[in-house]
Simulated assay, not measured.
Amino acid sequence: MAQHQVRIIGGAWKRTPLPVLDALGLRPTPDRVRETVFNWINHQLPGEWDTATVLDLFAGSGALGFEAASRGAASVTMIDNHGPAVRQLEANRDKLKADNITILRADALALARDMAARGQRFDVIFLDPPYQQDLLAKALPLCPALLKEGGLVYAEAETALSLEGDDAPEWLAGWDIVRSDKAGMVYFHLLKLQAGAT
Rank of each mutant, 00 (worst) to 15 (best):
Ala116Pro: 07
Asn92Met: 09
Pro30Tyr: 08
Ile101Glu: 03
Ala91Arg: 15
Glu48Pro: 02
Ala108Cys: 02
Arg71Asp: 00
Gly62Ile: 05
Arg32Val: 05
Asn81Gln: 10
Asp80Leu: 06
Val54Trp: 01
Thr53Met: 11
Met115Ser: 11
Ala73Gly: 10
Phe58Ser: 00
Leu109Ile: 11
Ala74Tyr: 09
Gly60Trp: 06
Leu26Trp: 06
Phe58Ala: 00
Asp56Leu: 08
Arg87Ile: 13
Asp94Gly: 06
Met78Gly: 01
Thr36Lys: 09
Val76Trp: 00
Ala63Tyr: 07
Pro46Val: 15
Ala59Cys: 08
Pro28Trp: 12
Ala117Asn: 12
Ile125Trp: 08
Ile103Gln: 03
Ser70Met: 06
Ala63Ile: 05
Ile125Gln: 06
Ser61Asp: 10
Leu104Met: 13
Ala68Val: 00
Ser70Thr: 12
Asp107Phe: 08
Lys97Thr: 08
Ile103Arg: 03
Val76Lys: 01
Phe122Cys: 08
Ile101Asn: 07
Met78Ala: 06
Asp31Val: 01
Ala23Pro: 02
Thr36Ala: 13
Leu57His: 03
Leu57Asn: 01
Ile79Pro: 00
Asn42Ala: 13
Leu89Glu: 07
Ala59Lys: 00
Thr51Val: 12
Arg118Tyr: 14
Trp40Ser: 06
Ala69Trp: 01
Val86Gly: 02
Ala117Glu: 14
Pro28Asn: 09
Leu55His: 04
Leu21Glu: 12
Phe38Glu: 00
Ala52Met: 08
Ala106Cys: 05
Asn100Ile: 06
Ala69Asp: 04
Arg121Pro: 03
Gln44Glu: 15
Phe38Ser: 00
Val124Cys: 10
Ala59Tyr: 02
Gln44Pro: 05
Arg87Val: 14
Glu35Leu: 04
